[in-house]
Design a protein around this nucleic acid. Structure first.
Lengths: 150, 150
DNA sequence: GTACCAGTTCAAGCGAACTTGAGGTCAAGC
DNA sequence: GCTTGACCTCAAGTTCGCTTGAACTGGTAC
């Protein structure tokens, strides 16, 4: 199995080297040695990074993701946790759908102010009730949004 | 219009007083006076808080939400922005659906390791490619998840 | 043999959205 | 009149996932 240096892993995974070092520090990935100072990784790390990306997208924190990796390096993903997360996602999807519809409605609603529109008020009530999470779902700020490797 | 003190607003909106003060500081809400030291709010603030909650859920930052409030206190929501956000949500929903299906599949997939399952690999690839955002969608940590008023 | 530069470490910083703590104030109840 | 306690201000702290900066190292090219 060919060994990759950090630059190559960064390039092929689209993950900045600084993030790779960070992941290693957190135990999410492991380098298998050094060439001089430079870390060397097995190419399997790319798979692992993909798994990490997937986990993040699914809403797991890095700490949770780290826990799914067994000491021997394999990933043993708890099937019940997966199902639970799928359930969560399902609820989420329904709620996001409601919000999307609400936004669309608000965009065309003839009411002089959105506050006077019953549909909009209903959705507002939903959000205010805490039924919907206040997550930065689509945060435009801060977070990187780069594509993968070129 | 009855005036509410901060405790009442907190109680009825489910938003901690500290957050209300923070919102005021950020210009998201405004108190109309004081009784002694205590801030007083018009009951319309509850509506505004609902709007803030909705905005957050839809993925707007507090700064963005603040911008939608006109100087006169009314909210003028940019219809194009709403539609754009609805579009974003739509894409998001599709992707979350794919992930949910992937998780469900992984949970029942007979492959010895998820890494050997083609379906799982395909989704992993999606996440790794950057096509999916790495948002803390369902963050279990940190963020409060309390229900609204009792 | 030496200069170069991509990599290294470690600590600190960031940004979002709040929370927490210390020390202060004021209306109300007794 | 004094205590009580909820609220006040201001600064600093928290969490997450990284990034950035300064000072350093070592294989590689010349």
């Amino acid at each position: 199995m060919r060994l990759l240096d950090i630059a190559e892993v960064a390039q092929r995974s689209g993950t900045p080297a600084s993030a790779l070092r960070y992941y290693e520090e957190k135990g999410l990935i492991a380098s298998v040695g050094r060439r001089g100072l430079k870390r060397l990784f097995e190419s399997a790390v790319l798979e692992r990074l993909a798994l990490i990306a997937l986990g993040q997208t699914a809403g797991f924190s890095l700490a949770e993701i780290a826990r799914t990796f067994l000491p021997d390096g394999r990933a043993e993903i708890d099937r019940d946790r997966l199902l639970a997360k799928a359930e969560e996602l399902d609820g989420m999807i329904g709620q996001l759908g409601a919000i999307r519809d609400g936004l669309r409605h608000a965009a065309v609603c003839p009411a002089p102010s959105h506050l006077e529109c019953p549909t909009f008020r209903r959705i507002m009530g939903l959000a205010a009730s805490g039924a919907l999470p206040r997550s930065p779902l689509l945060a435009t700020s801060g977070r990187r949004a780069r594509g993968g490797a070129t």
